[in-house]
Protein backbone atom coordinates (compact mmCIF):
# COMPACT_ATOMS: atom_id res chain seq x y z
CA UNK A 1 0.00 0.00 0.00
CA UNK A 2 1.55 3.34 -1.00
CA UNK A 3 1.32 6.59 0.95
CA UNK A 4 -1.61 7.95 -1.06
CA UNK A 5 -3.65 4.79 -0.53
CA UNK A 6 -2.87 4.86 3.19
CA UNK A 7 -3.96 8.49 3.50
CA UNK A 8 -7.10 7.79 1.52
CA UNK A 9 -8.02 4.87 3.80
CA UNK A 10 -7.39 6.96 6.92
CA UNK A 11 -9.47 9.89 5.70
CA UNK A 12 -12.31 7.59 4.64
CA UNK A 13 -12.48 5.49 7.80
CA UNK A 14 -11.11 7.63 10.65
CA UNK A 15 -14.58 8.53 11.95
CA UNK A 16 -15.72 4.93 11.75
CA UNK A 17 -12.72 3.77 13.80
CA UNK A 18 -13.16 6.60 16.29
CA UNK A 19 -16.92 6.12 16.62
CA UNK A 20 -16.64 2.37 17.04
CA UNK A 21 -13.92 2.76 19.68
CA UNK A 22 -15.94 5.42 21.49
CA UNK A 23 -19.10 3.36 21.64
CA UNK A 24 -17.11 0.32 22.77
CA UNK A 25 -15.16 2.13 25.48
CA UNK A 26 -17.54 4.90 26.49
CA UNK A 27 -14.64 7.26 27.04
CA UNK A 28 -13.57 9.99 24.68
CA UNK A 29 -9.91 10.03 25.65
CA UNK A 30 -9.52 6.26 25.35
CA UNK A 31 -11.34 6.28 22.02
CA UNK A 32 -9.00 8.91 20.65
CA UNK A 33 -5.92 6.96 21.81
CA UNK A 34 -7.21 3.70 20.36
CA UNK A 35 -8.17 5.32 17.04
CA UNK A 36 -4.73 6.89 16.73
CA UNK A 37 -3.02 3.63 17.54
CA UNK A 38 -5.13 1.76 14.99
CA UNK A 39 -4.33 4.26 12.23
CA UNK A 40 -0.62 4.17 13.08
CA UNK A 41 -0.66 0.37 13.07
CA UNK A 42 -2.21 0.49 9.63
CA UNK A 43 0.83 2.47 8.48
CA UNK A 44 3.22 0.02 10.14
CA UNK A 45 1.43 -2.89 8.46
CA UNK A 46 0.85 -1.17 5.13
CA UNK A 47 2.84 -3.76 3.25
CA UNK A 48 0.64 -6.58 4.53
CA UNK A 49 -2.82 -4.99 4.48
CA UNK A 50 -4.74 -5.26 1.23
CA UNK A 51 -6.43 -1.89 0.53
CA UNK A 52 -9.74 -3.56 -0.44
CA UNK A 53 -9.98 -5.16 2.98
CA UNK A 54 -8.77 -2.03 4.76
CA UNK A 55 -12.09 -1.34 6.48
CA UNK A 56 -12.29 -4.88 7.85
CA UNK A 57 -8.68 -4.70 9.03
CA UNK A 58 -9.37 -1.39 10.79
CA UNK A 59 -12.49 -2.70 12.54
CA UNK A 60 -10.74 -5.91 13.57
CA UNK A 61 -7.77 -4.02 14.98
CA UNK A 62 -10.02 -1.51 16.74
CA UNK A 63 -11.98 -4.33 18.33
CA UNK A 64 -8.80 -6.02 19.59
CA UNK A 65 -7.32 -2.83 20.97
CA UNK A 66 -10.61 -1.97 22.70
CA UNK A 67 -10.71 -5.41 24.30
CA UNK A 68 -7.08 -5.06 25.41
CA UNK A 69 -7.68 -1.62 26.81
CA UNK A 70 -10.83 -2.68 28.62
CA UNK A 71 -8.93 -5.55 30.21
CA UNK A 72 -5.96 -3.40 31.13
CA UNK A 73 -7.72 -0.36 32.41
CA UNK A 74 -10.77 -2.17 33.72
CA UNK A 75 -13.01 0.37 32.06
CA UNK A 76 -16.32 -0.27 33.71
CA UNK A 77 -19.31 -0.56 31.46
CA UNK A 78 -21.46 1.22 34.03
CA UNK A 79 -19.91 4.56 33.10
CA UNK A 80 -21.32 4.10 29.65
CA UNK A 81 -24.74 5.28 30.71
CA UNK A 82 -26.24 8.75 30.41
CA UNK A 83 -22.90 10.30 31.28
CA UNK A 84 -21.53 9.73 27.80
CA UNK A 85 -24.53 11.02 25.91
CA UNK A 86 -23.50 14.64 26.12
CA UNK A 87 -19.94 14.05 24.97
CA UNK A 88 -21.34 12.18 21.94
CA UNK A 89 -23.41 15.22 21.11
CA UNK A 90 -20.42 17.50 21.74
CA UNK A 91 -18.22 15.80 19.20
CA UNK A 92 -20.88 15.73 16.52
CA UNK A 93 -20.06 18.65 14.29
CA UNK A 94 -23.17 18.49 12.18
CA UNK A 95 -26.21 19.83 14.05
CA UNK A 96 -28.55 18.54 11.35
CA UNK A 97 -27.34 14.99 11.86
CA UNK A 98 -27.54 15.45 15.60
CA UNK A 99 -31.15 16.51 15.56
CA UNK A 100 -32.00 13.81 13.02
CA UNK A 101 -30.86 11.24 15.55
CA UNK A 102 -33.64 12.55 17.79
CA UNK A 103 -34.92 11.28 21.06
CA UNK A 104 -35.03 7.66 19.94
CA UNK A 105 -31.40 7.93 18.85
CA UNK A 106 -30.39 9.23 22.28
CA UNK A 107 -32.35 6.49 23.99
CA UNK A 108 -30.77 3.87 21.74
CA UNK A 109 -27.32 5.26 22.48
CA UNK A 110 -27.98 5.00 26.21
CA UNK A 111 -29.48 1.50 25.86
CA UNK A 112 -26.43 0.41 23.85
CA UNK A 113 -24.30 1.46 26.78
CA UNK A 114 -26.24 -0.88 29.03
CA UNK A 115 -25.50 -3.92 26.87
CA UNK A 116 -22.67 -6.29 27.65
CA UNK A 117 -19.49 -5.61 25.67
CA UNK A 118 -19.93 -8.75 23.53
CA UNK A 119 -23.51 -7.86 22.68
CA UNK A 120 -22.71 -4.22 22.03
CA UNK A 121 -19.94 -5.04 19.61
CA UNK A 122 -22.09 -7.24 17.35
CA UNK A 123 -24.88 -4.66 17.27
CA UNK A 124 -22.44 -1.85 16.47
CA UNK A 125 -20.69 -3.81 13.76
CA UNK A 126 -23.90 -4.96 12.10
CA UNK A 127 -26.27 -2.04 12.57
CA UNK A 128 -24.02 1.01 12.76
CA UNK A 129 -21.10 -0.04 10.58
CA UNK A 130 -23.07 -2.32 8.23
CA UNK A 131 -20.65 -5.21 8.52
CA UNK A 132 -21.73 -8.58 7.12
CA UNK A 133 -22.30 -11.62 9.35
CA UNK A 134 -19.23 -13.26 7.80
CA UNK A 135 -16.99 -10.28 8.44
CA UNK A 136 -18.20 -9.98 12.04
CA UNK A 137 -17.37 -13.66 12.51
CA UNK A 138 -13.84 -12.98 11.25
CA UNK A 139 -13.42 -9.87 13.39
CA UNK A 140 -14.56 -11.62 16.55
CA UNK A 141 -12.98 -14.98 15.62
CA UNK A 142 -16.30 -16.70 16.26
CA UNK A 143 -18.39 -19.15 14.22
CA UNK A 144 -21.07 -17.66 11.99
CA UNK A 145 -23.87 -19.32 13.96
CA UNK A 146 -22.59 -17.83 17.20
CA UNK A 147 -22.49 -14.37 15.65
CA UNK A 148 -26.09 -14.65 14.40
CA UNK A 149 -27.35 -15.96 17.72
CA UNK A 150 -25.49 -13.24 19.62
CA UNK A 151 -26.82 -10.52 17.34
CA UNK A 152 -30.39 -11.74 17.74
CA UNK A 153 -30.06 -11.92 21.51
CA UNK A 154 -28.40 -8.51 21.63
CA UNK A 155 -31.24 -6.87 19.70
CA UNK A 156 -33.78 -8.43 22.02
CA UNK A 157 -31.82 -7.10 25.03
CA UNK A 158 -31.63 -3.70 23.40
CA UNK A 159 -35.40 -3.69 22.95
CA UNK A 160 -35.85 -4.72 26.58
CA UNK A 161 -33.55 -1.89 27.73
CA UNK A 162 -35.59 0.61 25.74
CA UNK A 163 -38.86 -0.67 27.16
CA UNK A 164 -37.45 -0.54 30.71
CA UNK A 165 -36.27 3.01 30.07
CA UNK A 166 -39.83 3.89 29.15
CA UNK A 167 -39.08 4.30 25.46
CA UNK A 168 -41.36 2.35 23.21
CA UNK A 169 -39.70 2.11 19.85
Amino acid sequence: MDTDTYQDLVVRHKNLVHGYAYRMLGNREDARDVAQEVLIRLWENREKVIPDSGKAWLLRTTYRLCVDRTRRKKVRSEVFGDAVLDPVADVTPNPEKQSAAGELGRAIEAALGQLRKEDRTVVLLREVHHTSYEEIARILSQPLGTVKARLHRARIRLRRELVEAGVTP
Partner: peptide
Protein backbone atom coordinates in the same frame (compact mmCIF):
# COMPACT_ATOMS: atom_id res chain seq x y z
CA UNK B 1 -33.58 2.55 11.66
CA UNK B 2 -32.59 4.30 14.89
CA UNK B 3 -29.22 2.54 15.03
CA UNK B 4 -28.60 3.27 11.38
CA UNK B 5 -29.07 6.98 11.94
CA UNK B 6 -26.85 7.38 15.00
CA UNK B 7 -24.58 10.40 14.59
CA UNK B 8 -21.12 9.95 13.18
CA UNK B 9 -18.37 10.77 15.65
CA UNK B 10 -15.78 13.05 14.11
CA UNK B 11 -12.14 12.12 14.71
CA UNK B 12 -10.59 15.37 16.04
Amino acid sequence: EGLGSLPELEFP
